[in-house]
Design a protein around this nucleic acid. Structure first.
Lengths: 220, 220
DNA sequence: GTCTATAAATAGATAGAC
DNA sequence: GTCTATCTATTTATAGAC
């Protein structure tokens, strides 16, 4: 037994002494794998059609399990969506954590924007909840979601202020305007519109939207 | 009886000779007024919650008529939405037509962008149809909608090319990228996010989003 | 834990009286 | 033309067998 009462995610001991735990661990592993498969499907459907148009029947069918089994893992449709949002934000946070080696704050922000656009073009970016959705209430009471959103916002907010101090980002704009703009670009429908024309590569599309975002439409 | 078989909307004669016609005209007027009231409600609900979350019961309740009466005016929910979209685009086209006195093409484009943002903050901008919605099929087969979208796109497209020729708009960007970007900004969620903070005036919000759109996030 | 079958609620759309 | 009442399909969610 550890001397300190650490939360589970901070307990680093990988070795297990008792035999019975092995079976439990295996089961937990299987359950986790199943839930990850579910979340992957939800993530894609959420990106494709949005929360309202996504049906639980659809999710169950695509995962290949019965709907009742789905509800054993997640208590409601809103919680399904919340899990998908949390996973997407965790991946974003993971990517953000890889950027601490990049010195220039503006470059870090641009790297994040580029990453989110790539995720969106891959059809893996769950769309933002529209403001009056039933989803919003669930999300704002979902601590994992709120915590992650806060951490990401604080990290990016710090970078934004640093970039403004370096005169790299427009100082006339309040940091929250920049932050919300970056969030909005992660779901920018322009990417999908341009992709739907079938005339451009993903790389071209991302480069153009990156330019409109950071350089603006007007000639420099 | 008129000598030519003109469509109704091209018949300019305001004076009516036969008495019975007066009643018909009055009825038509009333019907048109009712339909305009319906479209106003649909427009607002579409802006608030989007097509999927909007219910026909809601529309009927807010207009103050029975649902069956609604269906006498519009054959389906999709047609309700289409009528709202068409009306919004007609208003956009009307505004665009007032801009032919403005000489600078860039100034015209900026005026249009500013106008759409004002409409959106007023809660009167019906949101874009998500790509796989049942609404999209109806819209693309709705000639009035397609015609208006085409006319607006051609007008703005011409202004974009002119502005690029004048070196006012970034020439690296294909005109279609600029056009889609302007369309997307008309529905930019950043406006709603910033308004929801309650910290800023509509004028501030519009000025900031206009700056991010045309000047970009990076320092000039 | 997964399944089949079903409940409960709500959606879009229509019938038929007035 | 507008209403009340209803139909039909779909959706979220659950009961209960295995």
């Amino acid at each position: 037994m550890p001397p300190l009462n650490l939360p589970d995610n901070l307990c680093m001991s990988a070795t297990v002494k008792d035999a019975p735990v092995k079976k439990t661990s295996f089961r937990q592993h299987m359950q986790q794998a199943r839930e990850e498969a579910i979340v992957r499907v939800v993530n894609r459907l959420l990106a494709e059609k949005g929360f309202d148009a996504m049906t639980v029947d659809e999710v169950a069918a695509e995962v290949g399990i019965a709907k009742a089994s789905l509800y054993r893992h997640f208590p409601s449709k809103e919680d399904l969506a919340a899990a998908a949002m949390v996973k997407a934000m965790q991946q974003a946070m993971d990517f953000i954590d890889t950027l601490h080696t990049v010195v220039c704050p503006l470059a870090r922000l641009q790297a994040v924007a580029r990453w989110t656009m790539k995720v969106q073009l891959a059809g893996e970016m769950p769309s933002l909840p529209s403001e009056n959705s039933s989803l919003r209430a669930t999300l704002t009471s979902h601590t994992a979601y709120v915590d992650l959103l806060l951490r990401i916002s604080e990290t990016l907010g710090g970078w934004i202020e640093a970039a403004q101090d370096e005169q790299k980002l427009a100082k006339q704009l309040p940091p929250i305007v920049v932050l919300y703009t970056l969030y909005a670009r992660a779901c920018d429908p322009v990417l999908g519109f341009l992709k739907a024309t079938g005339q451009f590569t993903d790389q071209q599309i991302i480069d153009w939207v990156m330019q409109t975002c950071f350089e603006g439409l007007r000639t420099r």
